[in-house]
Simulated scan of single mutants.
Amino acid sequence: MKLPRKVTHVLWRLCKECLPTNAALYNIHVDVNPTCPWCHSAVETNLHAIFLCDFVLTMWHVVGLQSLVQCTEHETPKEVFDRVFHQGSKDQCLEVTMLCWSLWYCRNKWIWDRANGSIFGVRNTTNCLFREWAEAQAREENMKIGGKVGDRVWSKQSTGWVKINVDATVFIMGGIGVAAIIKDNQSAFVASRVMKLPGEWSPREAEALALKEVLSWVINRYMHCEFQTDCYALAASCNGSTGSSLFDTIVIDCIGLSKHINQVLFSFAFHYANNVAHVLAHAAYSMTDVGDWFVTPPNFLVRSLELDSII
């Protein structure tokens, strides 16, 4: 089940029983009262904070999920979730997870900010979280290119293919830096190029120029190439229709150049997945000539390339 990261983080800590409840802090000799800040009638364990406190029991009853999350003090949070995911519907499981996050969030707001901790407040927080999550899913769906959402971390291509990450940066003092990193299907560094181009260009035009320069460079070198950019407009235009702006004219040139390569893919990646090319493009600012590296990367890129491999 797909969930917001902040929700999965709380659920993971809850299942591991390592949420910083009052009891947990008291056990590591922090000077706090170990009792529950809401009901003041029991020690605040992970299980109590989310499932057994009088306040949260009322909340689970109000939302109609009390039978699904009902438990005893001898169970663990993980056992409760195992039962929820086994017996509940997908919608019920989603609501339980969102409410768990909201309970912990509102509990902390009450402790630190003395914000009103009411059942209405918990449900309102959950509704806001649901709405934000739905909107995020809709945006992600709209950003699909060829049925695929952009990579959030760097990923290798299939056997026989190379992945070419392309990026550009616009310098305040004029000119742009364009760069490309080529890696094979084993994630090994193959080559890279960086150069500085003169002129005044918009960020989108700079990204398109970077792709054009890289396409010109790799023609007759590789047969199967995936070109990846963190400019969504560029990736979408290369896979769809174009207009008549300067940006679109450069894109048309790129498409024309790509026809000289046997197989080509144009894809979008989020910034982090394109970080190595981003670092290299910035390096163009201090360069006076084209920088090419083959087999062995420049020293200043080694750390960034290692991070790609770790992820």
Rank of each mutant, 00 (worst) to 15 (best):
R221M: 04
E226K: 14
R221Y: 01
F189W: 06
S216Y: 04
G199E: 10
S216A: 08
A208Q: 10
M195F: 06
F227C: 04
Y232D: 08
W217R: 08
K212S: 07
L234A: 14
L197C: 02
Y232R: 10
E213S: 06
A233Y: 13
I219P: 01
D230N: 15
K196M: 13
L209T: 07
C225V: 12
D230M: 15
E207F: 14
A236P: 01
M223S: 10
V214Q: 08
V218W: 02
K196F: 07
Y232F: 14
A208E: 01
Y232V: 00
D230G: 13
A206N: 03
I219V: 05
V214N: 07
Y232H: 14
R204L: 10
E213P: 01
C238G: 08
M195S: 12
Q228P: 00
L234H: 05
L234M: 15
K196D: 11
S237Y: 07
Q228R: 14
F189E: 02
L211H: 03
C225I: 14
P203I: 14
A191L: 09
V190F: 04
W217H: 03
A191T: 03
V194F: 11
R204M: 06
M195N: 11
A210K: 00
Q228H: 10
V190K: 05
F227P: 02
A208L: 01
E200Q: 15
I219D: 01
K212L: 07
I219L: 05
C225H: 06
A191R: 09
V214C: 05
V218Q: 09
A235T: 02
V194H: 05
A191Y: 09
R221F: 00
A210V: 08
L234S: 10
A191G: 02
L211V: 09
L209C: 09
E226T: 15
L234R: 05
V214F: 03
S192G: 09
M195L: 13
L209F: 05
Y222E: 04
P198N: 14
C225K: 09
A206I: 03
A210W: 01
Y222M: 11
K212H: 04
E200T: 13
A191V: 01
E205A: 13
E205N: 01
E200S: 14
Q228W: 11
A235F: 06
V194D: 01
S237Q: 11
V214R: 04
E200A: 12
V194W: 09
S216D: 03
E200W: 02
L211R: 02
M223N: 06
H224M: 12
E226A: 15
P198R: 15
P203E: 15
C238I: 10
S237P: 03
F189P: 01
S237G: 09
E226N: 12
S216P: 00
C225Y: 06
S237K: 12
Y232M: 15
V190E: 02
E207T: 10
S192V: 01
T229H: 12
K212I: 07
K196Y: 14
E226S: 15
T229D: 09
Q228L: 13
A235C: 00
P198V: 02
E226W: 15
